Each structure stands twice: as structure tokens, then as C-alpha cells.
Simulated scan of single mutants.
Amino acid sequence: MSLLADSDGERIARIGRYQVLDRPPRADLVALVEIAALAADVPMAAITLVTDTEQHQVAAVGFDGSVCARAGSMCDVVLAGGEPVVVADAGTDPRFRDDPSVTGALGAVRSYAGHPLVTPDGTVIGALCVFDTRARELTSGQARALAGLADRVVDLLELELRTRELTATVEDLRRAQAELERSNAALAAFAGQVSHDLRNPLTALTMALSMLAEEGADEDAGRRFLLDRARNGTHRMQLLIDDLLTVARVGD
């Protein structure tokens, strides 16, 4: 794998969306860390997410996860290269021999292996790490297991994120449905009121036109034509009002 180091802004934004910092360790992530320790046959393992200045051990086994400075940390080396880092003896490695977790100030780590956590968009957000207090090599099978588990860590983070997003979408749809039902009810009430308000004057107009037609039965053809058109218009309007009243009754 050849991944360039991601900008802090992209990484921090992605980590923020996962909502795992400053919260109790998630049980599913802790379970994966425990599997990683068993697969590598080591006493300690952790999921570390790295921001611009700190690394957050959001799940750990064999020790209490904490927040510490990013600069000079083991996981920062993984982040910088975007590739797995495997160290048989950190005490002899110039990159790690002065690290507090190696010197004894914070711990006595000797062997270390970290695999980058890479999101679907290619952002490296941290590492899945395994540690031992004795120098030792990681077998090829253990390295493959660590890589697979690192992918599963990202899968779990993404699954929880998508679940939250889907839940929010469903809630939005429910609110939209409730608003649509309210609007339909209001529209039905309005349609009913309008149809009733129009029916009475239209009925009066229809009667007046009928009376004019009867009184002017012997009048000229032009007047008869205009009256017929007016009566046809009122008839069409009556049909429209009936349709509007039907909609109001159905409430659709």
C-alpha cells in the first residue's frame, strides 16, 4: 500500500464524523482490539486515532487507553508513511528508542506493529497497534491478520456513521410526512370551505341566467348565443366545484 499522508483538516473532519473521541470505548471496537492482541499473541493492543496534535487511544486492551502528544509517537510514524510499521525491538530503533513508552517513562514497549486505518475515501485517520514488552518478530500470518482487522475497524466506524445518517434521514422523512399530512388536512379544509362559498353565488347566477333565457326566448339569436355560453360556463364551474368538494371529502 502506498498512501500519502493526509492533511490534518481532512483527517480531523473524518474523525469528528465518527464521534468516538471523548466518549467511553465502544464495545465493538474493544472486541476487535482483543482479537488483534490474540492474533498477534501479544499482551497489549489499541486503536489510535490521530488529530493534528494528539493521538487518542479510543479502545485498548492490556493497558488503559489515554490521550497523548502526537509528536514523536509510534502511531505518528504510521500516519506519516501511510504504511504498516513493524518493529522487532523498539529500544534499538532510532525512531522509537527515545519514546517515553519505550524508555520506561510511560511504558516498556519493545516489539511494535501498527497498521494504518484508511477510510473509504483514502484518509489515514490512525492505526491499529499491537505491543509487547519483549522483543519479537511478527509472523506473516499475524501481519495479514492485523491488516484485516484494521479494515474491520474502519468498517465498524463507517457502519455506525451510516446508521446514524440513515436514522437522521428516516426522522427527516417522518417529519416531512407529518407536515405533508398536516398540509393535506389544511388543504382539504380550505377546498371544502371554498367549494361551499362558491356554490351559493353560482347557484344564484345559474338561476338568473335560466330566467333570462326563458324571458328572452323570442329575442334575437345573438342574445340567445351569449346566454347559452354563460349557462355552459356556469355548468362547467359547477362541475369543478363538485370535484373540489370531492377532494375535500377524500382529504387527498
Rank of each mutant, 00 (worst) to 15 (best):
A150R: 02
V77T: 11
F131K: 11
A113D: 04
R136S: 10
V61D: 03
A145R: 15
G72H: 03
Q55E: 02
A71R: 15
V78L: 03
D121H: 12
V130C: 07
L117M: 09
T133Y: 13
R95E: 00
C75M: 06
P84Y: 02
Q142K: 08
G126R: 09
A150S: 08
A147N: 14
A127I: 13
E83P: 08
A59E: 03
C68W: 14
T133G: 15
T119D: 11
A145E: 05
D52F: 10
A113L: 11
T103D: 02
P84E: 04
L106P: 06
V87G: 01
R70I: 03
D76C: 06
P116A: 05
Q57P: 04
V58N: 01
T139N: 14
D64V: 14
A71I: 05
G65C: 03
P100K: 07
V109Y: 09
T119F: 05
E137C: 14
L128S: 04
V58D: 03
P120K: 06
A135N: 12
T133E: 14
V67M: 04
P84H: 01
D64N: 15
V124A: 11
V78Q: 04
E54I: 09
V86P: 12
T119V: 10
D64I: 14
A143M: 14
D52A: 15
D132F: 03
P120Y: 04
H115I: 10
V58P: 02
L106C: 09
A90H: 01
H115A: 12
G62C: 02
A60K: 00
R136W: 00
A113K: 13
V87I: 12
V61I: 08
H115M: 14
P84W: 01
A113P: 10
R97D: 07
L106T: 11
A147V: 10
R95A: 02
